[in-house]
Simulated scan of single mutants.
Amino acid sequence: MTLKARINEDVKAAMRARNAKTLGTLRLLLAAIKQREVDERVVLDDAAVVAVIGKMLKQRRDSISQYAAAGRNDLADAEQFESELLSAYLPAALPTEALVAAICEAIASTGAGSPADMGKVMAELRPRLNGRADMGEVSRLVKARLAGT
């Protein structure tokens, strides 16, 4: 079953269970997927759906930090719920050891030797780690590795 089909089945299950919060979040996800399909005139595969979910998760994390800073815990909790629900559709996260190994391999294959080569390394890592690691964390690790720390 494709990821998109699984999401559709979960929408149906949420409708049957009358779970409004889950249903609303899943409908937002389906709308984002459909919007991208219409914009690009393609049917999204699982990797592209994971990219859409990753983008939505990043938006949720930003919103959570802003709501928490403003003292709006009710809104932060709602965003946290959506974030946890969306995270369930992502592939399993890579352990730190595997992440570091992938970074070292990418640095070696691109021949990067300084922080100026970070773009090449990230371009190599992005397709392999999409949805399986926080790209902000990957960027921080690559930067530290290239700086020699």
Rank of each mutant, 00 (worst) to 15 (best):
L26Y: 03
V49P: 03
S87A: 15
R72Y: 06
N130H: 07
S63W: 01
D134H: 01
Q59H: 08
S139A: 14
T25F: 03
L141H: 07
A92H: 03
I33N: 00
R132F: 02
G119D: 14
M118D: 10
N73V: 04
D46P: 04
L23W: 05
L44G: 01
A144S: 11
I53F: 01
E124Y: 10
A17D: 12
R60C: 15
S139Q: 13
D39K: 08
V52L: 06
M135W: 01
A70E: 13
R6E: 08
E84M: 01
K21P: 12
A123P: 04
S87G: 12
D74L: 09
V43M: 10
G113L: 14
N73Q: 15
K4A: 12
M135F: 15
E105F: 00
K143H: 09
K12S: 04
F81V: 02
A92W: 03
L57V: 07
V43Q: 02
N8F: 07
A48F: 04
A31S: 11
R36W: 00
G119C: 03
G111R: 07
A106E: 13
M122C: 09
Q35H: 03
P91Y: 04
Q80A: 15
A47M: 06
A14H: 08
R16V: 06
E37S: 00
A106M: 10
L85V: 13
L75M: 13
G54H: 04
A98Q: 15
R18H: 05
S65L: 07
A32D: 10
A93Q: 14
A5H: 13
A76L: 08
M122T: 07
Y89N: 02
G54C: 01
C104N: 14
V121I: 09
D117P: 07
T149Q: 11
V121E: 09
G71N: 13
R128F: 00
G111S: 10
R128W: 00
V11Q: 08
L75K: 12
L129P: 02
L57W: 04
E37A: 09
T2M: 15
V52W: 00
K12M: 07
K21A: 15
M1N: 08
S65K: 13
N130E: 15
E40N: 08
M56H: 02
G119P: 02
P115C: 05
T22Y: 01
A92L: 11
V42I: 15
N73C: 03
L99D: 11
E124M: 10
V121A: 06
E79K: 06
F81N: 01
V100D: 12
D117M: 11
V50T: 05
N73W: 15
A92Y: 06
K21C: 05
L57N: 12
G111D: 09
I33P: 03
N8H: 09
K55D: 05
A5P: 03
Q59K: 08
K143N: 11
D45L: 04
L90M: 12
D62R: 04
A5Y: 14
S114R: 15
P127D: 03
T22W: 00
S87N: 07
K55V: 10
S65P: 03
A88L: 07
A14V: 11
T96K: 14
N19Y: 06
E97S: 15
K120L: 13
S114P: 05
A101N: 10
G113P: 10
K58H: 14
R61S: 12
